[in-house]
Design a binder for these strands. Structure first.
Length: 883
RNA sequence: GGGCAGUUAGCUCAGCUAGGGAGAGCAUCUCCCUUACAAGGAGGAGGUCGCAGGUUCAAUCCCUGCACUGCCCACCA
């Protein structure tokens, strides 16, 4: 097969995507003879199109899946998408808005229909993009969080929780987004630092001329104050506890209560308590049995509690109320004040805590269990530093508000018996996976379903087992075989939102963890370290990178920087360098292929020369490092290790050395060196296959003369037979000599086309045979015409000198040598050696060092010192020689 | 307020869970289109390893404190 001079990613990528899909390379069936290794994809939202975060997340998962597959596991990677609740509904609402419509114009049924239609049209976009990225997913198992299997699981889980008394409905203080018009859970609120004001307001004390000053950032909520709280230990206010104050603007009387939650150091140490609009105040109210007065409604408008402000927005009310307080002399002062304000994680609207009737899940018990499996190591975090935040979060959880007042999602499987007017009868509510035909209580057939849908994260939490049809058959064979999964790979931003909840649900319903490992990777940032966002305009489109540099280049670049738990900055240079690497692989392969033409090459490497043993040893070490790194998700280490081995050692040294044998007339010689080249090339390609699936499959096919994916081959294994420590040391001698000669050539501006003579004067006899045995390589690679090896050789006039450990090298450069340059070069080398010498002798003259440091270390220092001495002496001599 | 990361060459990062001569890629300089690769090769320059203490014969590496950056959590009225 012909190989082009430049690797053309476009040409091969599409072919392999089709091949893997058509041949079902990544489909998995139960095979009890093999261990399963499962990953369930973090389902991207159907709204999505592939961004760099997806590219990273899925590249990493694909690397793991391919690696495990090559290690012999029966791997399964389940694809799917998430319906994405609020986020997706918002997208479709925006589309409607362009047509000048709202969801209310359509009505619930038509709107939901529209949502489904939209999903049909665009929901698979991201899955197609994952195919292009090369992801080895089992496409026949593609799931959607609102498909039949998932819906059944959701209903089953809900009913189970309800029947056990873990789900309840009640009016509580919740986070409310006035734009999305729905409640949110605590973690769906993002807190951002904002500049605001702190208003000091005087509350007159009843039957007194005195007043109590409170400080607040939200004066508008004062209309709903039902107490003022002070710390019971606060001497300033001890006398006042139990007394009454008159609430300005309303003239309502409220009590002064004592509560430990109040911080004496903050503001005035007296807090206005608005239970209906602040979570702390709500708690205080519960402890002191305070009245709860709502002043803000679900639209974010003031209620009719105080007629004057009715219907005003929060902002308008604030301005008006501050004005009124000022006018009436209640406003003591205003300070600038920075504090964090909750915003909706989907639309950034300021969150209003309001009282609302919602469904809640009691999470206390399940959180304890979910924390325990992390503490005892059943679920491991990579990096482990995430374990603490994870358990800490679980240990301080409030009940989960699971109902949302949107239309897109799993509708809550609760039914009510209603009368002709649609009002609820006195019958019990019905929790059922199917809509009941009639009320089991009174037989009425007029049944309606609860209006709310479930938090999208409720169905996501069931994902690791709902994809295996847990809803229909809780103990099916596939679930038993593929669950628990091997690893969950994700960014840390959804650790609580999603990861923790999967663990809770898995333990609840399957009595087992959902995954053994949690691999938490960082966020891809732009070149200057900023988070990529549409508004900043710094988004790098992975699809653009794929078409410009190739998919393997994108994948390699991501892998190379994907250290667990750390954010990464990525730029064009990273992709460029990865593309160059792909090209390097391609050309090295091409070189080997060209030379193999017409020859039969052994499968096992024939290790004859020093360099053979050296390179196989290096290769073997690489296999060990790469395997170990991939096993603990150090994908970056794996990628860098292969890169370094392949480029620096295999290409720059071994292939260069092999050329000398390649051109030899001796066919057997050629076959021998090719056996090593081929063996290592194949092994390296295999190690790279998880990261760069396209180019490696292409090369694999070329070398094997048949099309069969490299992922079906075995990942290279560390081999005791390939350990050659001594040879590796000897090789270093050869490399040092070659480097010295090259250095002289370069510094003296000797053209690479010119062959020179070299004299190697042996200072250390034990090393002379190494040079002797490898003279041809040194000559070939350093472009030496005649190499003379000897003892006590005298340096010729007009020759340059280099000193290697155990050798002197003279290079006659008749007419070429520049005396000043040579002097400068030698002086520089002397200087470096002097530095080293000083460091060594300083240590050795330190008696503590000599007596207390390990003998090995002291000896090493001594050797270094004497080596430096010899070299310096030789160089000095040569300086005099030059004159 | 609490916690977690990070701070090493101009840039992006290794090295720090073996404490003992500072590494890579990109960029830069010199030479070279040497038939695998100019998306390449050879050679070079470039760093008081954030600051201050401590432990040690020896600290980029271990400990403490501080500074800056980023992130997470919190009942920041």
């Amino acid at each position: 097969m012909e190989m082009e001079k430049v690797y053309d990613a476009k040409k091969v990528e599409e072919k392999w995507v089709d091949y893997w899909i058509k041949n079902k390379t990544f489909s998995s069936k139960i095979d009890k003879n093999k261990k399963s290794f499962t990953i369930v994809i973090p389902p991207p939202n159907v709204t999505g199109s592939l961004h760099m975060g997806h590219a990273l997340n899925n590249t990493l998962q694909d690397i793991i899946i391919r690696f495990k597959k090559m290690q012999g596991y029966n791997t399964l990677w389940v694809p799917g998408t998430d319906h994405g609740g609020i986020a997706t509904q918002n997208v479709v609402e925006k589309l409607l808005k362009k047509e000048g419509k709202t969801k209310y114009d359509l009505g619930r049924e038509k709107f939901v229909e529209k949502m489904w239609q939209w999903r049909e049209e665009t929901g698979d976009t991201i899955l197609d993009q994952l195919k292009k990225l090369g992801c080895g997913l089992d496409w026949d198992r593609t799931r959607f969080t609102m498909d039949e299997a998932c819906s059944k699981s959701v209903k089953k889980a809900f009913k189970n929780f309800y029947d056990r008394g873990l789900i309840y409905r009640g009016k509580r203080l919740v986070n409310w987004c006035t734009r999305c018009n729905t409640a949110l859970s605590d973690i769906e609120v993002e807190y951002v630092q904002e500049k605001g004001s702190l208003w000091y307001i005087k509350y007159p004390i009843k039957d007194s001329n005195d007043f109590l000053t409170v400080a607040t950032t939200r004066p508008e909520t004062m209309l709903g104050d039902t107490a003022v709280a002070v710390n019971p230990n606060d001497d300033r206010y001890k006398e006042l506890v139990g007394k009454t104050v008159i609430l300005p603007l309303t003239n309502r009387e409220i009590k002064i209560v004592a509560d430990y939650i109040v911080d004496t150091a903050f503001g005035t140490g007296a807090v206005k308590v608005t239970p209906a609009h602040d979570s702390t105040d709500y708690e205080i109210a519960r402890r002191h049995d305070l009245q709860i007065l709502e002043v803000i409604d679900a639209d974010g408008k003031m209620t009719d509690l105080v007629a004057k402000y009715k219907g005003l927005s929060v902002k308008e009310a604030r301005e008006l109320i501050v004005g009124d307080l000022q006018e009436q002399g209640y406003l003591l002062k205003t300070e600038d004040y920075g504090h964090s304000v909750g915003r909706c994680y989907r639309c950034s609207t300021t969150i209003e805590p309001i009282m609302s009737e919602q469904w809640f899940l009691k999470v206390d018990e399940m959180s304890k269990k979910a924390a325990e499996v992390a503490r005892n190591g059943k679920v491991k975090f990579y990096p482990s530093s995430w374990q603490k935040p994870y358990t800490a979060w679980l240990e301080n959880l409030r009940d989960w508000c699971i109902s949302r007042q949107i239309w897109w999602g799993h509708r809550i499987p609760v039914y009510y018996c209603v009368d002709e007017k649609g009002a609820r009868t006195s019958c019990e509510l019905i929790v059922s996976e199917e809509k009941p035909e009639k009320c089991p209580c009174c037989g009425n057939t007029n049944i309606i379903q609860d209006n709310d849908v479930l938090d999208t994260w409720f169905s996501s939490a069931l994902w690791p087992f709902s994809v295996f049809h847990w809803g229909e058959k809780p103990d099916n064979e596939e679930l038993k075989y593929y669950y628990p999964t091997g690893v969950l790979a994700t960014g840390h931003e959804i650790l609580y939102l999603w990861v923790a909840r999967m663990v809770q649900m898995g333990l609840e319903f399957l009595n087992d963890i959902p995954f053994k490992d949690v691999f938490i990777h960082g966020i891809v940032r732009d070149k200057s370290g900023k988070k990529m966002s549409k508004s900043l305009g710094n988004v790098v489109d992975p699809l653009g990178v794929m078409s410009q540099y190739g998919t393997d280049a994108l994948r390699f670049a991501l892998a190379q920087v994907a250290a667990p738990g750390r954010d990464m900055q990525i730029s064009d240079e990273s992709f460029l360098s990865a593309r160059n690497f792909a090209n390097k692989i391609w050309n090295a392969s091409r070189f080997i292929l060209m030379n193999m033409e017409g020859l039969k090459i052994a499968d096992e490497p024939v290790l004859k020369e020093l360099s053979d043993k050296w390179i196989i040893n290096e290769y073997n070490m690489t296999v060990k490092t790469v395997t170990g790194a991939l096993e603990i998700y150090d994908v970056d280490v794996a990628a860098r290790t292969v890169y370094d081995f392949f480029w620096t050692k295999f290409c720059d040294w071994y292939i260069e050395l092999s050329k000398i044998r390649m051109t030899s007339e001796n066919q057997q010689e050629k076959q021998q060196v090719l056996s090593v080249l081929l063996y290592i090339l194949k092994g390296t390609i295999q190690m790279l296959a998880p990261v760069m699936p396209f180019i490696t499959d292409e090369i694999w096919t070329i070398f094997n003369d048949k099309q069969e994916s490299i992922v079906l081959s075995d990942f290279p294994k560390y081999n005791d037979k390939f350990v050659f420590a001594e040879e590796t040391k000897e090789m270093a001698v050869i490399q040092e000599i070659i480097s010295k000669v090259r250095n002289i050539r370069s510094e003296m501006n000797v053209s690479p086309a010119v062959f020179i003579d070299a004299f190697v004067n042996v200072l250390d006899d034990s090393k002379s045979s190494i040079v002797n045995n490898n003279a041809d390589y040194i000559k070939g690679i350093a472009k030496i015409k005649t190499l003379t090896l000897g003892k006590d050789m005298k340096r010729q006039k007009n020759s340059a000198l280099a000193v290697a450990t155990g050798f002197e090298i003279f290079i006659p450069l008749e007419g070429l040598i520049d005396i000043d340059k040579e002097k400068a070069r030698i002086n520089k080398e002397i200087m470096l050696l002097e530095q080293d010498k000083e460091r060594c002798s300083k240590k050795l003259s330190n008696e503590s060092f000599v007596t207390r440091a390990p003998k090995e270390e002291v000896d090493k220092m001594k050797t270094r010192l004497s080596d430096a001495d010899v070299k310096i002496a030789t160089l000095r001599e040569s300086l005099e020689f030059i004159g």
